[in-house]
Design a protein around this nucleic acid. Structure first.
Lengths: 252, 252
DNA sequence: CCCGCCATCTGGTATATACCAGAATTCATT
DNA sequence: AATGAATTCTGGTATATACCAGATGGCGGG
């Protein structure tokens, strides 16, 4: 009945749209229609290639397309899975991401990757309004929901101002630590968001393959007097978040 | 002299890091060292494969890696080129992007893709605080620097408030039009930024291949009374921009 | 000098094949 | 029941090959 029409359309589409994108569209549809749900495993490259009668490489391209879109993530040599829903991160409301997440019932786990006490390079010193070579406390943490990595954060604190900072447990909100133990809280911030290629080490921590893109979010945080005391850099799995802000036009 | 050491290191690296990433690293270095400059053409897939003694597919993967990173753009069947520097877009300072760009000597060209006068769907109506089915003026424009596409913008205006809007020349700042002819200017905005996969039509307009990622920026713009009058969606080539914001913590 | 044809270049798609290493599972041995 | 070895699965890398269609540039004819 309609089948002849359908096949006409299909061959038309086939003429224009590459096979691997058609397969990707197909799977995209299954995800949209919830036939495949969050963290469900997708068919393997080999089974897809049989299913659609294409070579493994073509099936692979379809899956890779979904992966770069962020609809799908892959776990090395285990398979590919449907990505979970995005988190929303309000950059204007600079109250701790950790507290926010916990308030919205997100199961957040923080892993401390590295801590150092070192000297500022020129760039960092400029951002923090300090002389070059000045002492800085730095730590890198990896944030997960469930066992799913979301972003890496490295923060640099003016060391003189926060003595013994690294003695605190960093698997909690640092905003909290700063307020409780150092009577310092964020008042304003300058934020930059950009998309860029992931670096090898980051890719490993985030559990994504090299040559993917990530979202980098950098912020300088200032106290009530406008004095910068922290520089932070977050590297997000791009598909895992969206960033919201509230802007107020200041006319001068 | 050092060559034996070097080759040791090289084979070590070779053992760990895939060949296609090594080639990508190599080219990335040439770009960083300015041996290849903005809009310079890269070696073709075939010449790269000869140069490094790998198959064309491997050379291709190297170039594709650079492309997804945004370091390189490709123009269908002409070749691959070094991407130009990013633009900086301050989302807090909501004064027209167009005026800003012109002030910073950026050669901006605007192409009007589509204009319509239609009825709001439920989602749009909610964002603009209007009843569903209400009349809306919409237009889609493509922004270039030189002949290089940067982003697509679609804006939706509450039609009743801006009669005859589409009669103006849209190849200029719409902020300007709104201020001059309708005594309306932006006071606050709610902005969302996310990374997502590009859609087929967008890919064509932006001159990128399908299955790449883009940055989507959505904003609701309100007047001095807090009444929303415009919803806009921008779809950026991710490598072409970075977004900055100034945040002020409001404690409640 | 201009126009149109054609060879040659480019990337885009697609197949078939091979081997590797890690993850998961199976199954026999202790 | 616990341990450990073997098998089977997965994606990751890499090669070789083929054909297509758009872009480009040279060349010849008007």
């Amino acid at each position: 009945m309609l089948s002849s029409h359908d096949s006409d359309i299909e061959t038309d589409v086939a003429a224009s749209r590459p096979r691997f994108l058609q397969i990707a569209d197909d799977i995209r549809g299954q995800i949209a229609r919830k036939e495949l749900k969050e963290h469900d495993i997708l068919p393997s490259e080999r089974s897809l290639s049989e299913q659609y009668g294409v070579s493994r490489m073509t099936a692979r391209r379809a899956l890779e397309a979904l992966e770069t879109e962020g609809l799908v993530y892959s776990s090395d040599r285990r398979g590919r899975f449907v990505s979970p829903q995005r988190l929303s991160y309000n950059v204007s409301n600079m109250v701790s991401f950790v507290s926010n997440a916990q308030a919205s019932n997100i199961d957040l786990r923080i892993e401390v990757i590295d801590t150092v006490e070192t000297a500022m390079d020129a760039k960092l010193a400029a951002r923090l309004g300090q002389p070059e070579g000045c002492s800085v406390t730095a730590y890198t943490r990896l944030f997960h929901t469930g066992d799913h990595p979301i972003f890496i954060e490295t923060e640099y604190l003016v060391a003189d101002r926060f003595p013994g900072f690294l003695r605190h447990d960093l698997r909690q909100s640092t905003t909290q630590i700063l307020e409780t133990h150092y009577q310092t809280s964020a008042a304003t911030g300058d934020i930059v968001i950009r998309m860029r290629g992931v670096q090898a080490q980051e890719a490993q921590l985030l559990g994504i393959s090299a040559s993917h893109t990530v979202i980098e979010l950098e912020q300088v945080i200032r106290d009530a007097d406008g004095v910068p005391f922290c520089f932070g850099r977050q590297v997000w799995r791009g598909e895992m978040a969206e960033f919201s802000a509230h802007a107020i036009v200041t006319r001068r």
